[in-house]
Design a protein around this nucleic acid. Structure first.
Length: 135
DNA sequence: GCCAACGTTGGC
DNA sequence: GCCAACGTTGGC
């Protein structure tokens, strides 16, 4: 099982909106690197849900319910959707500031590639953030 | 509101 | 294929 992190601005698509639906597609990715990461996701993989811009914190855990399939809203066939179901929220949200303060997370893609919206997370980084989140 | 990082576009 | 101009993301 691989682990990932996906970013969304909560005023557009928030953790609460996703939890209300249970399972929902991850939409509007229009960046090749992010799309390639989505294509590499397998059913059962887990992903952190991160609120960008407003909040700037990891708020919950998603699981891949359906692997990448063509995005009907995309003008070309290059971009895809992945369906995620919500697993559980973190007990304590983990803020970007906390992540930056944590030496063991210095190389996390969230910091290194700040504009990338779908990124892989190492097993070590996953465990650390889960612990910081009270899980 | 500003700006750094970085992806995309288009002229050459 | 290079690179300047421009647009977008996202932190501050």
């Amino acid at each position: 099982m691989k682990t990932w992190l996906v970013k969304s601005e909560p005023n557009v698509w928030s953790w609460d909106m996703h939890r209300e639906k249970g399972t929902a597609p991850w939409t509007d990715v229009r960046n090749y690197q992010a799309a390639n990461n989505m294509k590499a996701m397998k059913k059962g993989d887990r992903a952190f849900f991160y609120h960008s811009n407003i909040g700037r914190e990891v708020v919950g855990i998603l699981e891949v319910a359906k692997e990448a399939y063509p995005d009907p809203a995309a003008p070309s066939h290059h971009f895809v959707l992945v369906d995620f179901k919500t697993v559980k929220p973190l007990k304590k949200f983990v803020t970007l500031a906390q992540i930056k303060e944590t030496k063991a997370l210095a190389d996390i893609a969230l910091i290194r590639q700040s504009r990338l919206s779908v990124m892989p997370i190492t097993a070590k980084e996953w465990d650390i953030i889960c612990k910081m989140g009270g899980l």
